[in-house]
Design a protein around this nucleic acid. Structure first.
Lengths: 140, 140
DNA sequence: CTACGAGCTAGAGCGAGGTCTAGATCAAGC
DNA sequence: GCTTGATCTAGACCTCGCTCTAGCTCGTAG
């Protein structure tokens, strides 16, 4: 069997799906939406052939999505990269803005964690005391 | 003007919206969906009157939502509380499960932050060097 | 040659989580 | 009484981010 690697490291959509965790549907969707930096190459028969660079970009996309970047921003970022050198300041602004949102999100999650830990503690203590507390306060 | 406080601390839907950050639409939606512990009291004229306990519950809901708990889980939690004492172990399980998701999420976000910081650093350095680097790598 | 799985396109569909509208009612101030 | 603004209900509608379908083509193994 001829592996992907023997063809100069170009991957099929299915292989890319495996490596990125995105579905093949999602990969086609991302491409349609203009989230990729360049158009994906095709075989003579019309099948997509992804380069390692495409895959790296997709892996970055996945990380940015995981951290809550909307597709619209990702698209904007892709457009900037597509335009080539000269707009690095814009790209940096975009990333900085996102980084701040990520940090705010981490903060918020840590607060939630505290609240949850506290509530879980209330229940755990209640259970340890043998359910006799009559804990009937919706907020308790 | 008769304030909310003069009426035994009961609040109108608008006041609750202000205090919780939820819209009045969302408040009615949450109620319809069974996310509240009890039915909200009404005035003679049919307007909702929220007690401080209702508000506290909603504030918890907001925190849990912020940390990514789906409405379905929130509903489940509300049902458990509605059933009264005796199922504290179930409530604890639900909270523990969520806490683990929150911690995984914090982990993931911190990884994203690292990636973003690294990429932002690449751009910043590039800019500092005066844009002469020819930084034309989609992943750079 | 045939079969069969992977890929193709265009476009419909879906689940989550609200948001908004229409048309009526309530309540406070003048 | 009249006006004005907040609320009421039921239900339609919306955005986001995919996901799935139909009907066809490609390409590799047997």
């Amino acid at each position: 069997m001829e592996t992907a690697e023997t063809r100069a490291e170009q991957l099929s959509i299915g292989e890319v799906a495996e490596r990125t965790g995105l579905s093949v549907h999602a990969l086609r969707f991302y491409e349609r939406e203009g989230l990729l930096v360049g158009p994906v190459q095709r075989t003579a028969g019309g099948r997509r052939r992804y380069t390692p660079v495409d895959v790296d970009w997709l892996l970055i996309c996945v990380k940015l999505r995981e951290s809550g970047m909307p597709l619209a921003d990702l698209k904007h970022f892709a457009e900037l990269v597509r335009l080539g050198p000269g707009n690095e300041a814009d790209r940096l602004r975009l990333l900085d803005a996102h980084q701040q949102r990520v940090e705010a999100q981490i903060q918020a999650l840590e607060e939630c964690r505290t609240l949850i830990a506290w509530k879980a503690g209330v229940y755990a203590e209640h259970l340890a005391r043998g359910e006799a507390g009559g804990l009937w306060d919706p907020t308790g």
